[in-house]
Design a protein around this nucleic acid. Structure first.
Length: 556
RNA sequence: GGUCUCAUCGUCUAAUGGUUAGGACAUCAGGUUUUCAUCCUGAAAAUAGGGGUUCGAUUCCCCUUGGGACUACCA
């Protein structure tokens, strides 16, 4: 800034922002209280734009930010970046705040899930901070760090075309920065004529210069310094992301900026901005995006247009338990999460300490199979009552018919969900709540089709069912039932167990499993169900008899 | 095109200048159980390619190839 004429800059600032009194910036800074936080506490924030959509990648970033803040006894802020009026969508703030709320991610400051605002460093909507951006921009202009630019979009387009033709770097910089040294007098004149303008940073960087940059996720990097006179204030009076980020995170005293790595290449600009203002530069953590393989076989970021799974609504609709999605995301953030989980089976996931430096450096593929596994594990650990409540809550939003049944048959449903849900070897058949209905469907509707295994003849099947009908008593303990069942099988010429059958296969019509298969199909119409004895206990005597009779009738 | 960046089983990843390169999910095979999606055992499966440095490289360096991000008055 050696040859910048300070007087000229101050004049320029006054012409541009005549309504802002001298010293206003200093006043605001002086009024902003330092946060009283314990040593090592991190202040983080999630700052989405309200585009009507909560992206799973956003939840990922928010989750990491929230954990970093809270595990250090710091502060987590939800700030809304609504500086693009074109893209803003009605009701989007609600979607974001409540969506995060469903994931249990609650901010200490900013917009809360109930849409109220908390915190002493607000407002937390950027559209309500417009005066702040102007105040500090005036300061920057006065220091010779920014200037107005009157170039039209057309002019800029032409310049870029020229640059492309000449094969030089595109953009507004150096000798291409037409208004870099515009005089206060000229600005006054153009303003008087009603010309619109933007305000650009007067970059100090030169092409080819490097910036040693330490990123908390990516490590030590050598980035190119910023040499672009980027726009800070748009002609509509709104700041660009860059300026808003700088002003907001300085005023909110953010210590750790955790954001998607698409921001990495503009980090040098942000660093320059903080330096120009003489503010403390926050620590940066640029996290890798969650990607998918598309039709062409290339990896790309989850796209809100093309990929339904990019939207958190998708997970709500499918009924993935929220904690499963959270744990999967945590596992993506720090792969040692699953080791921790094995050691701490019943601990809440908040106990796991997230580390930024253990994050993936390049994008990770979202793996639904793995998610399903995590999810099944979680559902298996839940009680029947918890499962019932979760399924009911899911059904309320997605399956009104099922809700009716669940509400009417609350006790019965809980008994069903309790099958193989006690003890060590728990059944793992539900990954998401939308699976639930199908997995218990045969309890709701008795089967009408009975497809028997080819291993058992119709006559034998009939004999089996009639015999079962005679001896069955659902009050029997599992052992008693099994003894009866085995005797019955032997009586009809089947082997009492697999081992016996294998020693002399020709001596038997089949195995005990084959006999069980007949009963299973009669009761459920399926070959694949939970434990017979437990199911029959839930059915009760009457239902068991009714189903067996119906099956016999069907067999002719 | 320019700038930056990344590269370990199919996937997510661990590890180290010297290891049989480890785990998890998925896959396959065997076993247990009255079925099974549970459970147990086992198998197959990776350091992108080429050069260096080194006694020794997957690890450090260079090149190639491939991927990703950015290159807006969008965030």
């Amino acid at each position: 800034m050696a040859n910048t004429n300070l007087d000229e800059s101050v004049q320029l600032a006054d012409i541009l922002f005549p309504d802002i009194p001298v010293g206003r910036a200093a006043e605001i800074l002086a009024a902003s209280k330092p946060r009283a936080l314990p040593e090592g506490a991190c202040v983080t924030r999630f700052a989405p734009s309200p585009t009507g959509f909560l992206h799973i990648g956003g939840v990922y970033a928010a989750l990491i930010s929230e954990r970093i803040a809270h595990q250090t006894k710091g502060v987590f802020i939800l700030r809304i970046e609504d500086t693009d009026k074109q893209r803003e969508v009605e009701g989007a703030i609600k979607i974001i705040a409540q969506g995060l709320g469903r994931f249990g991610i609650s901010p200490d400051e900013g917009v809360l899930p109930d849409l109220s605002e908390a915190g002493a460093y607000g407002p937390y909507l950027q559209s309500e901070r417009l005066d702040l951006y102007r105040v500090f921009l005036k300061e920057l202009v006065a220091r010779g760090g920014a200037y107005p630019c009157f170039c039209s979009t057309e002019e800029l387009d032409i310049a870029r075309e020229t640059q492309e033709l000449q094969k030089v770097k595109t953009g507004y910089y150096g000798r291409w920065a037409k208004h870099r040294n515009i005089s206060a007098a000229e600005v006054a004149e153009r303003l008087a004529r009603g010309e619109t303008y933007v305000v650009r940073v007067k970059s100090r960087g030169a092409d080819g210069e490097k910036l040693q940059f330490t990123d908390l996720v990516k490590g030590s990097l050598s980035l190119s310094v910023n040499d672009q006179d980027s726009i800070l204030l748009k002609s509509d009076g709104y700041p660009t992301y860059h300026w808003a980020h700088c002003v907001d995170d300085a005023l909110m005293q953010t210590t750790h900026v955790i954001r998607g790595d698409e921001w990495l290449s503009s980090a040098p600009l942000h660093v320059e901005l903080f330096e120009l203002m003489g503010w403390t530069i926050p620590q940066y953590a640029h996290i890798a995006p969650i990607v998918k393989i598309d039709e062409t076989g290339t990896k790309r970021k989850l796209s809100k247009r093309k990929d339904p799974e990019a939207n958190v609504e998708f997970y709500f609709k499918e009924g993935y338990p929220i904690s499963a999605v959270t744990e999967y995301l945590l596992n993506l953030a720090n792969s040692n999460f699953e080791d921790w989980r094995r050691e701490n089976q019943n601990a809440p996931s908040e106990k796991f300490v997230v580390r930024l430096d253990k994050g993936s450096v390049s994008g990770a593929l979202f793996d639904f199979v793995k998610l399903a596994d995590v999810s099944k594990e979680i559902v298996a650990r839940m009680t029947a009552n918890e499962v019932y409540s979760a399924v009911l809550a899911w059904a309320r939003e997605n399956d009104s018919e099922f809700v009716l049944w669940l509400e009417k048959n609350s006790d019965y449903a809980q008994k069903i969900f309790n099958i193989e849900r006690e003890g060590e070897k728990r059944r793992k058949d539900i990954a998401k709540w939308s699976d639930a209905r199908n997995s218990i469907e045969y309890f709701i509707t008795a089967p009408t089709e009975f497809v028997l295994s080819e291993k058992v003849s119709a006559a034998d099947a009939r004999a089996i069912l009639e015999k079962v009908s005679e001896v069955i008593n659902v009050e029997d303990t599992a052992d008693v039932w099994l003894t009866k069942f085995r005797a019955l099988a032997v009586e009809l010429g089947f082997a009492p167990d697999t081992k016996t059958f294998k020693t002399n296969p020709t001596a038997f019509k089949g195995t005990l499993g084959d006999v069980a298969g007949v009963l299973r199909v009669a009761l459920t119409g399926r070959t694949n169900t939970p434990d017979l004895h437990q199911m029959m206990q839930v059915f009760g005597m009457d239902e068991v008899h009714a189903r067996i009779d119906r099956a016999i009738a069907k067999l002719g």
